[in-house]
């Protein structure tokens, strides 16, 4: 087991290193890094100063060593727009994004799993078919378009919920959160739902497929032959089996949710790091873009690592084979 964990951590470090190299190539090796890292409005003297400071006149390998060194210190340059370290600005926006992503993930599971199980148990019923049709729709509607429709319906036509912004926030342990105030919650419903819908469809389809698969297994019939109630069969025998793939996928999807938050945050003007990224792209504030990329890569690699370890803890079969290995 320890061997497995170590090997898995090694793989994660490999992924991080690979991404760092790719970013380095993207920023330093291809094109002129001065264009990327120096404020476009700077004059010649400033450019020369920055070039020297960043060591852009040094050989490539030395530049890379420097880049990695800065990376370990979390130093990814200074924002042209804000004039502060890019990492600091990103980290400031991180809680808002995480709050949104986690809420959306919870919504996707809490709504998606029961619907998927239902559609799996009764695949031919009207209810089951509607759930599936709905999930195809949820799958097909691009994220930003769902967001626009939500705004159009709930904010513009019905006027029930605000169309954007984060609303009132409270500070908990130095982090500003929305979900503890009524106003914050009202602001969070639409973006969280928007971010959740796509994953919800995924969860529904996955849960349904697995439920159907598990239902055909002999052990379900045997469980029925033991005289168990259908509630127990569904809640224990089926759910326990389908939770393994669902948890795996969902863990991996948390990473993609953070990435997709870019879209939702833009649509709903949610002040997270995704919105910051789009603003930075429009303002050509490249150090922030690079910082966003590196931070997201670290988050995703970490999540993937945790999910893999969690997976082996959940499935007794995997656990055993790894002990043997």
């Amino acid at each position: 087991m320890i061997v497995y964990i170590l090997r898995r951590i090694g793989q994660s470090l490999f992924a991080l290193a690979a991404m760092a190299i790719l970013v380095f190539i993207g920023v330093f090796a291809i094109g002129n890094p001065v264009d990327i890292l120096v404020n476009p409005e700077a004059n010649q003297a400033e450019i020369a100063a920055t070039t020297a400071r960043l060591g852009l006149d040094k050989p490539l390998w030395e530049q890379f060593a420097r880049f990695v060194g800065h990376l370990f210190q979390g130093d990814l340059g200074t924002s042209f727009v804000y004039g502060r370290p890019a990492m600091e600005i990103i980290l400031q926006r991180l809680p808002a994004t995480m709050e949104l992503a986690v809420t959306a993930l919870i919504l996707a599971v809490v709504i998606g799993v029961p619907l998927g199980v239902y559609a799996g148990l009764k695949p031919d019923s009207i209810g089951g078919r509607s759930v599936m049709a709905g999930s195809i729709l949820g799958f097909s509607l691009p994220n930003f378009w769902q967001g626009l429709l939500l705004i159009l319906i709930f904010a513009v036509l019905l006027g029930w919920l605000p169309a954007g912004g984060r609303g009132e926030t409270v500070e908990v342990l130095g982090i500003r959160v929305s979900f503890l105030t009524l106003d914050g919650l009202r602001h969070m419903i639409l973006p969280a739902l928007n971010l959740a819908l796509f994953k919800m469809s995924l969860v529904i389809r996955l849960t349904r497929a697995n439920t159907r698969e598990v239902c055909l297994q002999e052990y379900i019939k045997f469980a029925r032959a033991k005289g168990l109630s259908s509630t127990r069969i569904v809640l224990v025998h089926i759910l326990k089996n389908i939770m393994i793939p669902v948890v795996t996928i969902l863990g991996l999807e948390l990473g993609s949710m953070i990435a997709f938050a870019v879209v939702t945050e833009t649509v709903f003007a949610w002040p997270g790091m995704g919105k910051l990224l789009i603003d930075s792209i429009n303002l050509l504030d490249r150090p922030v873009i690079v910082a966003y990329l590196m931070l997201t890569v670290v988050i995703i690699v970490t999540i993937n690592l945790i999910v893999d370890l969690l997976y082996s803890a959940l499935d007794p079969r995997v656990r055993l084979s790894q002990v043997k290995a």
Partner: peptide, 29 residues
């Protein structure tokens, strides 16, 4: 079912739920 009429299946590799412990599967019965 399971109380006065019980059943044993063909393939023992398939009849026990792989993710539940033996005691769970017996006690619930």
């Amino acid at each position: 079912r399971g109380k006065r009429i019980a059943m044993i299946f063909q393939d023992p590799m398939m009849t026990l739920n792989p993710v539940l412990r033996i005691d769970t599967q017996m006690i619930e019965t």
